[in-house]
Simulated assay, not measured.
Amino acid sequence: MKIFKLILLLVALGIGGGATVMYSGIVNVAADEPHSDLVYWLLEQTRENSIKKAARSIEVPDLSDPELLLTGGTDYEYMCSSCHLKPDQNESDMSLGLYPVPPNLTVSDNSHIGHEHGDEIETARKHFWVIKHGIKASGMSAWGKTHDDHRIWAMVAFIKRLPTLTPEQYQVLTAID
């Protein structure tokens, strides 16, 4: 019975502490001031593990299909480039104003999305899942509400090639027919 009372007391203290923090306004939610290192680490680990688990069983199509690259390029230009940038671009008004800062997908070191292990299938799965479902409170839209899976895979195929594109190649691949 003592253990039950202790657990009940700890739960009540946890709820009370959480409510105090929530209603006091002491947590800074401003996008122009970063989280503490601990909070950032906790959020990053939670996000990465959630995406990895959710994307685990996604079947990856052949991403070398040229049609996917062309379709994905146009969508990337209009839906993604203002945050995730273009070749030879280091920042934009959107990328500077968001927190966490969106990853620059034009560079080859995208360790935050699976490249650190060299696992292209896992990376493609993660990209697909993130594009389709978005990420809460990050500015990353859930494009699966307006785009079918084929179109999302086209964006994944384009993102896979993006770090190797010159500005001129990018312009050709993102031009509207």
Rank of each mutant, 00 (worst) to 15 (best):
M94F: 11
H115W: 06
A31R: 12
T71K: 10
I3N: 08
I3L: 12
R161E: 15
T71M: 06
A154E: 03
E116F: 12
A55F: 05
E168C: 02
K5H: 11
E59R: 02
H150R: 08
S64Q: 11
S141I: 00
P163Q: 01
W41K: 15
Y170A: 07
H127M: 14
N110T: 15
V101R: 14
S36A: 12
C83P: 12
S64Y: 03
S82F: 05
W41H: 14
N49F: 05
H115R: 12
S82E: 12
C80Y: 07
E33G: 00
V27N: 00
A124F: 03
W153T: 00
H112F: 07
S108Y: 02
K86E: 14
F4S: 13
T166W: 04
W41G: 10
G139A: 10
P100D: 07
S138C: 01
M22S: 14
V39S: 08
P34S: 13
V172K: 09
T174E: 08
T166L: 00
Y23K: 11
K160C: 04
K160D: 11
A54H: 01
G144C: 08
S138Y: 04
D37N: 13
K2F: 06
T71V: 06
A54D: 12
F4V: 10
F128I: 03
L42R: 11
F128D: 00
A55Q: 00
W143R: 03
H115S: 14
D149E: 15
P87S: 08
K145C: 03
L9I: 12
Y170R: 02
S36H: 11
R125S: 04
S108P: 05
S108C: 04
A54W: 04
V60H: 03
N28S: 12
S50H: 02
E44V: 10
E67T: 13
F4I: 11
E48I: 00
L105M: 15
G18W: 13
H84D: 08
Q89D: 01
C83M: 10
N28P: 09
E168D: 15
E120V: 11
E91K: 08
L69H: 02
V39W: 00
P87Y: 01
A12T: 10
V101F: 06
K2A: 09
A157H: 02
D62I: 05
Y23G: 09
I51H: 04
G114Q: 10
G16D: 08
M94P: 01
Y40Q: 14
A54Q: 10
T174C: 04
G114F: 01
P102E: 07
E168K: 11
A175E: 13
E122I: 09
H112A: 11
H35Y: 13
N90C: 02
T146Q: 11
W153L: 04
W41C: 07
E122F: 01
P61M: 08
P61D: 08
P66V: 01
T164A: 15
A30Q: 15
K5Q: 14
P167A: 10
Y170I: 07
L68T: 01
P103I: 13
M94C: 09
E59A: 15
S81R: 11
L6V: 15
N104G: 08
G25T: 09
S95A: 14
N49I: 06
I159A: 15
N104H: 09
P100M: 07
I176N: 07
A175I: 09
P87D: 08
L43F: 06
D109H: 04
